[in-house]
Amino acid sequence: MFRVCRRYCGADAVGLGIPGAEAMPFLVKPLLAAMANALFPARCLGCRQLFHRQAARAKEDGSEKSDAGRALADYFCPVCSGQWTAVASPLCSRCGMVFKSRVGPDHFCGRCLERPGTFTRARAAGAYDGTLQLAIQALKFKGHTHLANPLGRLLYATYRHYWLDGDIDLIAPVPLHRRRFRRRGFNQALLLVKAWPLSGEVVMVRDLLARNRPTPPQTGLDRRQRRINIKNAFGVSRPGESVGKRVLLVDDVLTTGATAEACATALLKDGAKRVDVLTLARA
């Protein structure tokens, strides 16, 4: 019975073969889920300790960071789930970098004043640290694709916070080169947005951009090296698709912005009206 609960608590109660389940799935399913949570605690991806999911969810319901907390409460204990830094003002109006000083309004940072770049603005859900960093790394490098759903919900909440209806026409995940895609087996940027409940006015185009050549990982490179490494690495795979459109680029992490700039350059050359950037984290 315990094995049945553990395996099927998230499935339709009818599939459990429980008498009368067809008539009252709304009663059976929550009961089985509660039994499974009590009998089979999860292991935190952060501290590796066992915890009960219901306790983590209850704590995050009252948190100021509840969007991320609820999204990650099934995978991190109540202590670890709160150990991340939400992006908040004051920040750079363009690149989204959070200023060390926590006083004053949003404004352009010195780098964006000197070199405005190609994308219009970038925003992120949180800093690339703590629980959020662990979750992104687990998805990206350890193949924990089940994290794409909660992280995608967090990213969607961030999108709805910063962009109003009618602000965006096309959503484009940053692509991987085919070699890296074959090695990894998935594009994490695509997984993050594929389940978004978009209206008919906003279209997600999974192959709007193409990575024309493989590039070494950007990790460990400085700003100039990243810009050189990624130069001319992207192009449009659907010429003319972005003409006159407002495009939102989506990726997991924004560091120096070199990848976002390269993608935006390709889209603007194709005729895009504007390119914005949204990521889970800002490094």
Rank of each mutant, 00 (worst) to 15 (best):
A124C: 13
I136P: 09
Y159D: 02
I168M: 10
L151H: 10
F119C: 07
R180G: 05
A125N: 03
L134R: 15
V205T: 10
F186M: 06
A138M: 09
W196G: 00
E201R: 15
Y162H: 15
A138P: 00
A195Q: 14
I136V: 15
A172R: 01
T145F: 02
N187W: 06
T145I: 14
L191G: 01
A148P: 11
Q137M: 06
A127T: 01
R160E: 12
A172N: 02
A127G: 07
A157W: 06
A195W: 03
L170A: 01
F186Y: 14
D165P: 03
V205A: 14
V202I: 14
H161R: 15
L192P: 00
P173G: 08
G143A: 11
G166L: 08
A157S: 12
W196V: 05
G130I: 07
T120G: 00
E201S: 15
R121V: 06
A138T: 09
L176H: 06
A172E: 01
P197M: 03
P150Q: 11
W196Q: 00
V205G: 05
P150N: 13
R179Q: 13
A122Q: 02
Q188A: 07
R160Q: 14
F141Y: 15
T145R: 14
D169K: 08
L139G: 00
L154G: 00
Y128V: 05
G126C: 13
L191A: 02
L208I: 02
E201L: 11
L151W: 12
R121I: 09
H177D: 12
W196E: 10
D169Q: 07
L192H: 05
Y162A: 03
F119M: 07
L208W: 10
P173C: 08
P197G: 01
A172M: 09
L198A: 12
D169F: 08
K140N: 00
D167M: 08
M204A: 15
I168N: 06
L176R: 06
F186D: 01
R182P: 02
P197A: 04
R182S: 04
L134F: 02
L139D: 00
R153Q: 15
H177R: 08
F181V: 00
L134D: 12
H144W: 05
T158F: 03
L190E: 11
L134S: 13
R160V: 06
L132F: 05
G166P: 05
L147F: 13
T120V: 15
V174P: 05
V202R: 14
L132H: 12
V202A: 05
P175L: 04
G200N: 12
T131G: 10
F141W: 11
W196F: 09
F119A: 11
R179G: 08
A172P: 03
R121F: 11
G166M: 06
N149A: 15
Y128E: 00
H144C: 08
L147Q: 13
Q188K: 03
L170Y: 10
P173N: 07
K140W: 00
L132T: 03
A124E: 00
L176P: 04
G200I: 08
R206W: 06
G200R: 13
T131W: 03
A125E: 02
A122T: 07
A122V: 10
L132Q: 09
H177K: 09
A138Q: 10
E201I: 09
G185C: 09
W163C: 10
R153K: 15
F181A: 09
D169P: 08
I136Q: 07
H146N: 05
